[in-house]
Amino acid sequence: MPYTEPVESANGRIREVTVGAGESSVAIGGAAALPFHWFDGEAPRRPMIAMEVFDATPAEWAPALTGALGDVMSDPATWARANVEQHGADMVCVQLASTDPNGADATPQDAAAVVRAVADAVRVPVVVYGCGNAERDADVLKKVAETVTDTVLAIGPATEDNYKAVTAAALGYGHVVVAETPIDVNMAKQLNILITQMGLDADRIIVDPSTGAVGYGVEYGYTVMERLRLAALVQNDDMTQMPMICNLGKEVWRSKEARASEQDEPAWGDAAKRGVLWEATTAITLAVGGADVLVMRHPDAVAVVRKALSGLTA
């Protein structure tokens, strides 16, 4: 019996979203095939890796992580430069964790100054995540958007509770919106509709479908992303054709499996390798699910995932 290659070409295509400034701007998305299905159709680029910096020195991080990052963590601009120059980050993701009103309660002005410093320190695009408090994020992201206008930022998370303010800020200052919904195909689509109805171009939205780490619900994010990709490519549903971003570093490094020392969990083996692999296996699973941008933390995880992304791209 003769074998015919079962190639399946797509009916739709993922949008291209451009972030960054001038010559250092970067396009993400753009594929007309499922992730790494280069044999089915055009897949112009591999997923990008955005390495995290925090607006204040993180406390209580795993030793495997702080040891690998070194003493850059007290200064976001230095940290961002190390991410790009030493670790080859495609982008930098500023996590404005200290703006949390229940935490350090840093002001929108403080946050904007951090983003300004990071954007000045690197020549790669910058993603900005607020603390996750919808009300505070609206204020913070507005200030960030109006302060840093010489590059296209990706700002978020815009949620159903604050998308109007975040979208208005992006519209006013030429930025891209990261639209976050809780692991649900229809809610992701609905938020895209609401944001575009405010007048933002559909190719200025990146979807954050929410995710968990391996062992903490990675399969939910993975499956929602696969379904969104199939809707985009097979059904040509234009409100699902946005590139996707996975904010996975914080999920991974919260897990016991990534953090526990070998003394605490002798049966789990070498803590440094285990932590790196927890992040790397989570990242690659989400990339296979459909992530176009992976927000990552550990330099060694970034290095091994970058090799794998290249290896999977023909």
Binding site: K273, V276, L277, A280, T281, I284, T285, V288, D300, V304, V305, K307, A308, G311, L312
Partner: peptide, 9 residues
């Protein structure tokens, strides 16, 4: 490490 990441795929 890379082998394990490919195994995850």
């Amino acid at each position: 490490m890379l082998e394990t990441v490919y195994a995850a795929v």
